[in-house]
Simulated assay, not measured.
Amino acid sequence: MMEVQNVRTALDRHWAASAAGDQVAEHEIYHDDAVCEYPQSGEIIHGRHNLQALRSHHPGKPSGFVVRRIVGQGNLWVTEYAITYESKPVYTVSIMEFRDGKVLHETQYFADAFAAPAWRAQWVERKIGL
């Protein structure tokens, strides 16, 4: 139980730092030799230093960041969140694998919002915004 609480606390600190733009605190969660994958672009980032440098040089500062939910146990944790860039939400899923309390491997998926088709309106509830 203590390990779960420690990981959850580390994740909460990580996402709060990410939302605040605190690049140092955001990357404390990673092992020095962590690997982060972006499957949609085919990119693999090797090492905490490279990951922090890449994120520090992003040309657009997010104007919003909302964690939707965090679930996990043991060494595998998933966070769903939305980042707003230039008034456009990007829905993101982060899958983190931990070793010794730090992230060894992360995979992130990014998806743009899209208009709901009218044909399924009778079966769905509409949620507006992030």
Rank of each mutant, 00 (worst) to 15 (best):
E3D: 04
V4W: 01
Q5R: 13
V7Y: 06
R8T: 03
A10P: 09
L11Q: 12
D12Y: 11
R13L: 11
R13T: 15
H14R: 06
A16P: 01
A19H: 07
A20M: 07
D22E: 06
Q23P: 00
V24G: 04
A25K: 01
E26P: 13
E28Y: 09
E28F: 10
D32K: 15
A34M: 12
V35G: 05
P39E: 13
S41W: 14
S41H: 11
S41F: 00
E43M: 13
I44A: 03
H46P: 05
H46S: 10
G47M: 07
G47N: 10
N50H: 15
N50P: 04
A53W: 06
R55N: 08
P59T: 03
G60P: 01
G60A: 02
S63V: 01
S63K: 07
S63W: 08
G64Q: 14
R68W: 14
R68E: 09
R69C: 09
V71Q: 10
V71S: 07
G72R: 11
Q73E: 07
G74F: 03
T79H: 11
Y81F: 14
Y81Q: 05
Y81E: 00
A82I: 04
V90S: 11
V90I: 10
Y91V: 12
T92A: 00
V93F: 03
S94K: 13
G101P: 12
K102S: 05
E106N: 12
F110C: 00
F110M: 02
A111P: 05
A111L: 02
A113C: 04
F114L: 14
W119G: 12
R120N: 10
A121R: 15
A121H: 07
W123D: 08
W123S: 02
I128N: 02
